[in-house]
Design a binder for these strands. Structure first.
Length: 315
DNA sequence: GCCAGTCAAGTCCCG
DNA sequence: CGGGACTTGACTGGC
């Protein structure tokens, strides 16, 4: 079984290279419109350059899974601003996409917690706009449907069944190109693995298993019990999952600096036993790329696991 | 150059 | 129903 490990957004090993520089609406309003617009576009370009640099770093370190920042282009979806990212950054996006394909890196994006498809009309409208923005970036990179955009089921609003039904009812608002990329992740408080899986099966979208969220918010079945069904939702695309470790027993939901390989290893062994040929593991840890490489190093010490590259292993 | 406060988003809990 | 917590990294302003 091939295991590819990745990290989120920023490479700490690179000096002063954030892909998430901001330009807030408050500041936007304080300047003449033309100047403010130019500034927003410039910040976006800087973030894309930082992203390109991180991808160089990933290729050099054998890291073939990466979640891009969701704050690449500030204010791109703000109703009063709106930046056509595919047009404005056509050259930059094409170059990044070409590099991603050449180096066989799988990229994903994860709109923030405020992007939900089951809220009120205004919330859903903003969420769809946000998904279109994320999709436009990946489209501009010329990436296929293996590169995913991940969100959560959404709010509960006092009645989970009704709230999930709202998601189903709203799903027609999500365009076909976005559906090719959209995954749903179980969360640490509201929607369990089984509830998320059921929604994914109903909608025909892949399920992103977050194993730490499952520990925080378990259901009657274990992730390994549900693995055949979860795996099936991915179709032709390799299955992807999230892992993080609790920072502290008293602060269980928060992410720690690095990943404790033990509990993950137990899950990976179960995956191997069930015949999975490949799994992509996204590390969510404070130490980002350093935690990703450390996990690869730790897993490589385990008997039966071979490190093929920086963050690529064979089990 | 450091530290505290601000910003942005939507939900959920408390009063 | 209004306000604060939650979350996260970047950034601003005071000293």
């Amino acid at each position: 079984m091939l295991i590819r490990i990745g990290f989120v957004s920023i490479a700490l090993a690179i000096f002063q290279n954030t892909p998430s520089s901001t330009f807030t609406y408050k500041l936007f309003q304080q300047r003449p419109r033309d100047e403010a617009m130019a500034r927003a576009i410039e910040v976006g370009r800087k973030n894309l350059q930082a992203t390109q640099r991180i991808l160089y770093y990933n290729a050099a370190h054998g890291i073939r899974l990466y979640r891009m920042s969701s704050s690449l282009v500030p204010l791109a979806t703000h109703p009063d601003v709106i930046i056509d990212v595919k047009e404005v950054y056509a050259k930059e996006l094409a170059a990044i996409g070409e590099f991603i394909r050449k180096e066989d890196i799988r990229v994903t994006m994860h709109p923030n917690q405020f992007t939900l498809l089951n809220g009120n009309d205004k919330v859903v409208e903003a969420a769809v706009r946000d998904l279109e923005y994320h999709n436009a970036l990946m489209d501009g990179m010329g990436l296929d449907g293996m590169h995913k955009i991940n969100i959560h089921i959404g709010g509960v609003y006092g009645d989970k069944e009704k709230a999930v039904q709202k998601l189903y009812d709203n799903f027609h608002l999500v365009s076909e190109p976005i559906r090719k990329r959209l995954t749903f992740e179980n969360d640490d408080k509201a929607y369990t693995t089984l509830e998320t899986l059921t929604a994914c099966e109903t909608l025909g979208q892949p399920m992103m298993l977050d194993i730490h969220h499952d520990w925080c918010n378990p259901c009657d079945s274990t992730p390994l019990d549900l693995l055949p069904r979860i795996h099936a939702t991915w179709g032709d695309a390799p299955m992807k999952m999230h892992v993080s470790s609790p920072r502290d027993p008293s602060d269980f939901r928060a992410h720690s600096d690095y990943i404790d390989p033990e509990r993950l290893l137990e899950f990976l062994r179960g995956c191997k036993k069930q015949g999975l040929e490949r799994i992509d593991v996204m590390v969510e840890a404070k130490q980002k790329d350093l935690a990703c490489l450390k996990l690869a190093e730790d897993l490589a010490k385990v008997r039966g696991i071979k490190r093929l590259d920086g963050a690529v292993l064979e089990m």
